[in-house]
């Protein structure tokens, strides 16, 4: 059965979606990814959609769900490489893509994740005397 591979890349997980997602495949990805985050206890997930030509509300919902679920497991999700045509379509459709960060490419996505995790570390270290940052 077809499944989308999830790679562990240092402190992050990387998923590259190269094919049109039909519903079953997307739901499997959601399940696999969440299980993997729990198992590896990574702090960040990168989903590369640069090869994806269509994001409809179903797939947008899956991406949002993944983001929210990962957040519950203390990991941030970054969707990277969205094509201009896809971005324009999503805006017109009115899909805000909540719960995930976005970045131009994998490199920038990793940079973003690192800065998010750094901030969290700082916040945790300062937790006793400064709660206003939260």
């Amino acid at each position: 059965m077809e499944r989308i591979p999830i790679l562990k890349l240092g402190a992050f997980l990387l998923v590259t979606i190269q094919i049109d997602l039909y519903d079953r495949l997307a739901l499997d990805l959601e399940e696999d990814l969440v299980a993997m985050v729990e198992k590896t206890s990574v702090k960040g997930v990168l989903i590369d959609i640069s090869a994806v030509g269509i994001v409809d509300s179903f797939m947008g919902k899956i991406l949002g769900n993944i983001g929210s679920m990962c957040k519950l497991l203390d990991a941030e999700t970054v969707v990277v490489g969205m094509q201009p045509a896809v971005a324009i379509t999503l805006v017109e459709l009115g899909l805000p893509l909540k719960g995930v960060y976005t970045a131009l490419n994998v490199d920038k996505g990793m940079e973003l994740l690192r800065s998010k995790i750094e901030i969290e570390d700082i916040v945790e270290a300062d937790d006793d005397d400064d709660t206003s940052l939260n």
């Binding site: 969205m82 201009p84 971005a87 999503l90 893509l97 960060y101 976005t102 970045a103 131009l104 996505g109």
Partner: peptide
């Protein structure tokens, strides 16, 4: 606003 939203979706 649409232009801004689309730019943000792409991560810029």
């Amino acid at each position: 606003l649409k232009a801004v939203s689309a730019t943000r979706l792409m991560g810029a």
